[in-house]
């Protein structure tokens, strides 16, 4: 497979288009999530109950990865998975339905927003920090043993790099030259704890050296730099040269979860200027690649896709409480 190393104008517009789609989805979930939780805030109330971790600000990571992956490639994500799922081609209607806890959802309402599984896209996520990494090794192992050039991308937050699972996974993947790309989303915060209080090194990319694999850090949430770094890592993995580690300094635009008052956070002041979408919009406009009409069309298309998914979710049936015991085992029954 030839690997592209230069972005075309169309590719750049596609990156922005994906970022806009993700943001549109997250804004819609934000709207729906809070629509029936006031006055006051009851996390268990409403059509979309439970914890909600939205990824506004982290779109460059997802867009930069997704551009390099094909239908057979795998991805494992985290408790904050929507942006990655969308960029990886997860069925957006079924994902919305799962978030609304509907029978038509990816997991028939059994999983919820932190537990999205789309076997057709080979996508999964885990709500346990760093524990989504080891299963990605197994997917990569299966692809390797089948003689394919398919790869697995394992995404985790910067807090995950201090977990044992991270280090075990990097060692084993390097040892067996598995076609895995580890991507760390460094959004500066492990809920309320800044990375300066959690991490002994200024960049998790340096930790790659401990396992004899390449490590790269992408600064400034720059989508084109993510694209370039992931492109090289994917090329390497498809060529049988083994895993890579990429850390992206990204941005969590909103709270850890909805309802997080973020009193611990002093970086909110600067947020508007750091929002990657207007930044990249301006970059492409200044370069003469993007005109107003095209950007307007992107937003309209994203809205149409997202609102269709939300409508599908809301109009879908809820699971039958009589079926609450189904799917524990493959025969659907339990003693």
């Amino acid at each position: 497979m030839t690997v592209q190393s230069v972005l075309s104008e169309k590719d750049k517009l596609d990156l922005l288009r994906m970022m806009v789609l993700i943001r549109t989805f997250e804004e819609a979930i934000l709207r729906e999530y809070h629509a029936d939780k006031s006055p006051g805030f009851d996390i268990g109330a409403g059509l979309v109950p439970g914890e909600m971790h939205l990824a506004a600000g982290q779109e460059p990571v997802a867009a930069g990865i997704g551009a390099h992956l094909s239908r057979g490639d795998a991805m494992t994500a985290t408790h904050r998975p929507h942006h990655l799922a969308i960029a990886h081609g997860v069925d957006i209607r079924k994902m919305a339905a799962e978030i609304f806890g509907r029978e038509t959802g990816l997991g028939r309402g059994r999983g919820g927003h932190m537990h999205l599984f789309d076997p057709e896209a080979h996508f999964s996520c885990s709500g346990i920090v760093a524990e989504g990494l080891p299963p990605a090794l197994g997917q990569a192992f299966a692809f390797q043993r089948a003689g394919t050039d398919r790869v697995a991308v394992a995404v985790a937050g910067e807090g995950a790099a201090n977990q044992g699972a991270f280090h075990e996974a990097l060692n084993l993947a390097a040892l067996w030259k598995l076609p895995v790309i580890f991507v760390i989303e460094d959004n500066d915060w492990g809920i309320s704890v800044p990375r300066s209080a959690s991490t002994s090194v200024p960049s998790n990319a340096v930790r790659a050296a401990a396992y004899g694999i390449p490590g790269t850090r992408v600064e400034d949430n720059a989508v084109e730099d993510v694209w370039a770094a992931v492109g090289e890592a994917v090329r390497r993995a498809r060529a049988g040269e083994g895993p890579s580690l990429i850390e992206v300094h990204t941005l969590r635009l909103w709270g850890h979860f909805e309802g997080d008052a973020q009193g611990y956070r002093g970086d909110l002041e600067g947020v508007p200027g750091r929002d990657p979408i207007p930044t990249y919009h301006k970059h492409l406009s200044d370069a003469g690649i993007l005109d107003t009409a095209t950007f307007t069309e992107m937003g309209a298309a994203a809205s149409a896709t997202v609102e269709d998914a939300i409508a599908f979710a809301k109009s879908s049936p809820l699971p039958d409480p009589a079926d609450a015991l189904k799917y524990v085992f493959t025969e659907g029954a339990r003693s």
Partner: peptide, 11 residues
Amino acid sequence: GLGIGAAVEGM
């Protein structure tokens, strides 16, 4: 975990 991922992919 590797076993889990491999099983998910049909091994």
